[in-house]
């Protein structure tokens, strides 16, 4: 393993200073590559099954603009605040970092709340995962994204606890950086969901 694990390279940002951190960050980028393949498959499935609505409602009948817009604004904003958190970290300010992380995860929690409400509305209208192939693929695609966001929230809480316990170290900095990569990635996925699922669904 990394012989130079504790050789600090002062010129690099804090999160890149140990060999272990550099390996982990590269590995996480590659993991995101696998996640791209995963979501691409889910999108492909959705696009194939999109018009196979069986006896159930079509996308046009189902989707409501308002809730989806609110979700989108919440998540896009959270991506911005997550960026601010990393910015504060680079400046070495723990309080700023923690504050913006807290804002990010609250926005994320807001997003999840609205998404869950949206799903519950659909189920009350009789549009469940079991209704049609279209709805199965819709719930699984959007649900997988939502599950990712939920995992991200829990993950962020754990990192905030570690930041409070241990302060800003190369190790905690790396963790913050990686969770921020994850969060921005989910934001990008949501942009695709918003356009390919909701906008397309409401227009076509």
């Amino acid at each position: 393993m990394a012989e130079a694990a504790h050789h600090y390279d002062e010129k690099m940002p804090l999160e890149y200073r140990t060999e272990e951190s550099r390996l982990n960050i590269l590995g996480f980028w590659i993991f995101l590559g696998a996640e791209v393949a995963l979501f691409a498959t889910l999108f492909a499935t959705y696009l194939v099954l999109f018009q196979r609505t069986g006896n159930g409602p079509t996308a046009e009948e189902l989707f409501q603009v308002k809730g989806v817009m609110i979700e989108t604004i919440l998540l896009l904003t959270s991506s911005f605040t997550c960026g601010l958190a990393v910015f504060e970290m680079r400046r070495g300010r723990l309080t700023g970092l923690l504050t913006w992380l807290l804002v990010t995860l609250l926005l994320g929690a807001g997003f999840i709340t609205f998404e869950v409400r949206e799903f519950i509305d659909y189920v009350h209208e009789g549009a469940t995962m079991q209704t049609s192939a279209f709805l199965s693929s819709f719930f699984v695609l959007v649900g997988t994204h939502g599950a990712h966001v939920s995992v991200g929230i829990v993950w962020m809480i754990l990192i905030m606890i570690q930041l409070l316990q241990r302060g800003l170290t190369p190790r905690t900095a790396r963790k913050v950086f990686i969770v921020s990569l994850y969060w921005h990635f989910l934001d990008v996925v949501w942009i695709f969901i918003f356009t390919l699922v909701y906008l397309t669904g409401m227009v076509i």
């Binding site: 995963l38 498959t41 499935t45 609505t53 006896n55 995962m129 079991q130 199965s136 699984v140």
Partner: peptide
């Protein structure tokens, strides 16, 4: 990841009666 998704959809079809690969409802 493609296998992961395929197996997940299969699991949903088999355990939770979704309609990805079934003969009815699309």
């Amino acid at each position: 990841p493609v296998l992961t998704v395929a197996l997940a959809l299969m699991t949903f079809d088999r355990l939770f009666d979704t309609q990805f690969f079934t003969m009815a409802n699309g």
